[in-house]
């Protein structure tokens, strides 16, 4: 049993820089106005978790929210 994370894009903060969807396309998608949404609400695969943190570290608007557990 690995501990997972919950992943969310704050729609009020996201301005569509598209860094998350470029770095982790399996976790984030863009709508037609270029704003990001999470594809998965939670993830537990270590590889996905790493990518979620990479995406968060590269979002200029600090719009990606990760909660552990």
């Amino acid at each position: 049993m690995t501990s997972g994370i919950t992943l969310r894009v704050d729609p009020d903060k996201c301005q569509g820089h598209a860094r998350c969807s470029a770095l982790a396309p399996e976790l984030f998608q863009l709508d037609e106005f270029g704003n990001a949404r999470e594809r998965l609400g939670t993830c537990s695969e270590p590889d996905q978790i790493d990518k979620a943190y990479v995406a968060r570290a590269n979002c200029p608007e600090e719009a990606i929210i990760i909660t552990e557990g």
């Binding site: 301005q15 569509g16 820089h17 570290a57 590269n58 200029p60 608007e61 600090e62």
Partner: peptide, 15 residues
């Protein structure tokens, strides 16, 4: 550089 939340394209509503 792996962590690079640069703002070359701006920040906020005028991105």
């Amino acid at each position: 550089r792996a962590e690079n939340p640069h703002v070359a394209f701006g920040l906020g509503i005028h991105r």
